[in-house]
């Protein structure tokens, strides 16, 4: 049985399954063999007077009673590193505001990751935690509109002496045969933007409203949608779930994951 599972989940088998859509594998954690902290590629925005409030829990304290530190690494839309924040001995829940000032005047968008570290955790403990965070997007100083994380992307060993991060949880296909249709009619809103971030180690090709986009590793993109009744993404990524920014009467903002 173990051998059969190994065959079903080796890279070649997964590639074939995803190519022919035969029991496709969208995400996998089976290759993670040590205590690990997983993170989404979380969206942040400081463009057009946006700010991003990041609320998160100290998972190692809550579930394992361990002192830890939390690292948030912020990247721009082209995966260029901008800033690292380290929180030593975090509280049960914590908040950080990503604003233009916080980023030294940087206006734009991109993704950030959040990982937990502790030297009290051993590899053999096989702990896997995943911080899903809650992001509050404020537009022109409005009340933040909250959305939670929606897809794990990177993982990093919890042991503090190992700082390797990999984005090999979400799987890809050799061709763009993956459809993702948002289960909502957004014609209620005047303007709709979708945020997409490449959660994989590979290059992602995607098609939206007959336009082709390429997202390199760690790249993210905001795309304005014209046909708000039917939002369809075709790509070679097995789990490319967008965050939607919907605007009403110019000043009201609704943010949710698709």
């Amino acid at each position: 049985m173990k051998l059969l599972n190994k065959i079903k989940l080796n890279s070649f088998s997964v590639a074939i399954r995803n190519l022919f859509l035969f029991k496709p594998v969208d995400m996998r954690l089976d290759h993670i063999k040590e205590s690990t902290s997983c993170s989404d590629s979380f969206c942040w925005r400081t463009d057009d007077k946006f700010t991003t409030l990041v609320n998160f829990s100290d998972l190692l304290k809550i579930f394992y009673d361990l002192k830890s530190k939390v690292c948030i690494r912020i990247y721009d839309a082209n995966n260029k590193f901008i800033k690292k924040i380290t929180i030593l001995n975090p509280s049960t829940t914590n908040s950080i505001l990503i604003s233009k000032n916080f980023l030294g005047g940087y206006e734009g968008y991109g993704y950030f990751s959040i990982h937990h570290y502790s030297n009290k955790v051993k590899n053999k403990d096989n702990i896997i935690i995943s911080n899903r965070c809650y992001l509050g997007f404020s537009y022109h100083e409005s009340l933040p509109s909250f959305v939670h994380g929606n897809a794990i992307s990177s993982h990093s060993p919890i042991q503090q002496n190992k700082r390797i991060r990999q984005n090999n949880i979400v799987q890809t296909s050799l061709i763009s045969n993956q459809l993702y249709k948002v289960q909502n009619d957004c014609s209620f809103y005047e303007k709709v933007e979708i945020f997409l971030s490449n959660p994989t180690e590979s290059v992602i090709k995607l098609e939206i409203e007959n336009k082709i986009y390429t997202l390199n590793r760690g790249f993210s993109k905001i795309i304005e949608i014209k046909n708000k009744k039917e939002i369809l993404i075709r790509s070679n990524c097995l789990f490319l779930r967008p965050v939607l920014f919907c605007f009403k009467n110019k000043i009201y903002l609704d943010v949710f994951h698709g």
Binding site: F146, H148, Y252
Partner: peptide, 22 residues
């Protein structure tokens, strides 16, 4: 959350979604 004419709506995850190990 409601502040004058602005709203925010979201749910929290159940705790077991934060721990993925056995």
């Amino acid at each position: 959350n409601k502040l004058r004419e602005h709203l925010s709506l979201e749910h929290t995850h159940p705790p077991h979604e934060y721990v993925l190990s056995s």
